[in-house]
């Protein structure tokens, strides 16, 4: 579980996060949603320790990240898997080397064991026979799956995903969403996904947190988000024509 208490963060003199308090449970896909510029990515970077909040505390289980020394923070990061928006695969390594990277850095396994684990996770993300290819030689969807494989290869306790669907067609996006949710349940990890994709919210949003102008304005499940009268939620959810029409049909039926 990750607990966040009154987190404030400023960048370039502007306050981006204005006191966020929430909890992200283990074994659930937790979604952080909001419009562009609402502070989602800054919040994510605070959670993983790339940014230090000026105020507030972030707890991993019972330990506050602010109280950890460099060694403890490094150990914590070994338990974190991260899926970046663009995949962030290392260009100079092939797929096998990319996925094996955390094992080479943090374990003392021999190459045979590492290779077996790499093949296991690549199979888990439905990728086979790509081991020797380089990131530039595979599609965007495949890169995202390789990135998921790299994130889970060292059996992390926490999985962070920054806009995992961006730049993907709807079918591949659904596939990635489903994969993230399945892995969350299978490994019983705390997963946090930053997105502004309402399809993701509908499919995998076991807990949804809505940010607006750096403030948490609503939190609940993907079922509750379509029932709430919260104005910020309705403005965000029904901003697209598709969801507006769904809403009109719902209202007519009611």
């Amino acid at each position: 579980m990750i607990k966040v208490e009154d987190v404030h963060k400023s960048l370039g003199g502007e306050e981006i996060l204005k006191g966020i308090t929430t909890e992200f449970e283990r074994g659930k896909t937790n979604l952080i949603i909001g419009q562009s510029g609402s502070g989602k990515t800054v919040f994510l970077k605070c959670l993983i320790g790339l940014f230090k909040p000026e105020q507030g505390r972030i707890y991993y289980e019972d330990k506050a990240i602010q109280d950890m020394d460099d060694d403890l923070q490094r150990k914590l990061r070994e338990e974190i898997g991260m899926l970046f928006q663009g995949g962030a695969l290392f260009d100079s390594m092939n797929i096998e080397e990319n996925v094996m990277f955390p094992l080479r850095m943090f374990t003392k396994q021999n190459k045979t064991d590492m290779l077996a684990r790499v093949n296991e996770v690549l199979k888990r993300v439905n990728l086979e026979n790509v081991n020797k290819k380089f990131p530039a030689e595979i599609s965007g969807g495949m890169q995202k799956r390789v990135s998921i494989a790299r994130a889970i290869v060292n059996k992390p306790k926490y999985l962070f995903c920054d806009e995992p669907n961006s730049g993907l067609d709807p079918k591949t996006a659904t596939l990635i969403d489903t994969l993230i949710q399945e892995i969350t349940h299978e490994y019983n990890i705390t997963t946090i996904v930053v997105t502004h994709d309402m399809n993701s919210v509908m499919e995998i949003g076991e807990k949804v947190v809505l940010l607006k102008h750096g403030k948490l304005v609503w939190q609940g499940t993907n079922q509750e988000i379509f029932k709430t009268d919260n104005e910020d939620v309705t403005n965000f959810v029904y901003s697209s024509d598709l969801f507006k029409k769904i809403r009109e049909v719902q209202l007519k039926e009611e």
Partner: peptide, 10 residues
């Protein structure tokens, strides 16, 4: 973001 990926891994 490859440098961020390294940092996140500790």
């Amino acid at each position: 973001e490859q440098i961020d990926a390294l940092e996140v891994m500790g």
